[in-house]
């Protein structure tokens, strides 16, 4: 697909999604769309580092939680407006990304070693937020209810929809731009063969640092949105493994290293969990079991994800694994 065609498709798809608040009047249905967009944002954030950069992270909760806690702590402890918190939260998450990236890429950690260290960082942050006072420790933080647009707390779901729509669209446009830039070419080169990339003059460390910071930034934005949408945080929600798993599940199911993969993955996952809720009821853990089974099926049979499957059905490349091509690619 030509890059211009991709951009056009992106605009059309997000335009169509933008019709949701006009067509859907039921709050519970609109909520599903909002949560799907939010999952797509989180998944796209992971996709920048994991899909395009080949650095598989098991700890994206570190960035998500940092974004969420930043906006919450600034409001609750310092009375700072959450719109400012939105920017600060994204930047703080990017800074955490820079720190983790420096600690790991500096020493050449790749593949499963990188994945384990990211998991450890997220766990450290979870324990820290569980033990210090200003994050509310284990009790968590309740953001006081004050519904107004100036306060990033909307009375209607439609307004929340527009906020997450803009954020997610921005993330997807950024990834489109990455796919059409020198940075993106160098990032995928590092993913597919780091030594060959370096021999051609690619500064692998710098490229990976750029990717982890961008990835952290967008995951942080997702965290800010989550905090403002639900107005409650605790260490388990913000830094728990569930977020890390969701952020990698979405692009893996949708298609790693593809522009539309995270959107497909998010729609599929949320569709499935709603379906399972309708059929089986709200039994605890059912969705987790489903996710696990799904992940096994996808990795075994459709390693290039739904996006790969779709391009195959249109007569493109066969849905073979891209992961097999590169060295040091978990």
């Amino acid at each position: 697909m030509k890059t211009d065609t991709k951009l056009l498709m992106l605009i059309v798809v997000f335009g169509l999604i933008g019709l949701a608040p006009v067509l859907i009047t039921q709050d519970s249905l609109l909520n599903i769309v909002i949560m799907t967009l939010y999952a797509a944002l989180l998944g796209q954030a992971w996709n920048i580092l994991g899909g395009y950069g080949g650095q598989v992270s098991f700890g994206h909760a570190a960035y998500f939680g940092t974004g969420a806690y930043t906006v919450a702590v600034l409001q609750v402890q310092f009375g700072i407006n959450p719109w400012i918190g939105l920017a600060v939260g994204g930047l703080a998450a990017a800074a955490v990304g820079a720190f983790i990236g420096f600690c790991t890429f500096r020493y050449g950690l790749r593949g499963s070693y990188f994945a384990l260290v990211t998991l450890a960082f997220a766990e450290v942050l979870r324990i820290l937020s569980n033990s210090v006072d200003f994050t509310g420790a284990g009790v968590g933080l309740l953001i006081p209810l004050e519904r107004s647009a100036a306060n990033f707390q909307f009375a209607s779901k439609a307004e929340f929809f527009w906020v997450i729509w803009v954020m997610t669209f921005a993330a997807f446009l950024t990834v489109w731009k990455i796919g059409n830039s020198r940075f993106g070419a160098q990032l995928t080169a590092v993913r597919d063969n780091e030594d060959a990339a370096r021999a051609l003059g690619v500064d692998a460390f710098r490229v990976k640092m750029g990717a982890i910071m961008l990835s952290g930034f967008f995951a942080g934005l997702a965290g800010v949105f989550y905090a403002q949408y639900f107005l409650y945080l605790d260490p388990h929600i913000a830094y728990g493994a569930a977020i890390s798993v969701e952020s990698l599940l979405v692009p893996i199911i949708g298609g790693m290293g593809t522009l539309f993969g995270p959107l497909l993955g998010a729609a599929f996952l949320h569709g499935l969990s709603e379906l399972s809720r309708a059929v089986i009821g709200d039994a605890p853990g059912v969705s987790l079991v489903l996710y696990g089974v799904l992940l096994v099926i996808m990795v075994l049979f459709v390693p290039r994800g739904l996006a790969g499957l779709m391009s195959h059905l249109r007569g493109g490349k066969p849905p073979v694994s891209r992961a097999g091509g590169g060295k040091g690619h978990a």
Binding site: T188, D192, N193, D195, A196, R322, G325, G326
Partner: peptide
């Protein structure tokens, strides 16, 4: 260049 060729496979 590399003796054992190192293409970016998949690209």
């Amino acid at each position: 260049t590399f003796q054992t060729v190192q293409p970016f496979a998949g690209q």
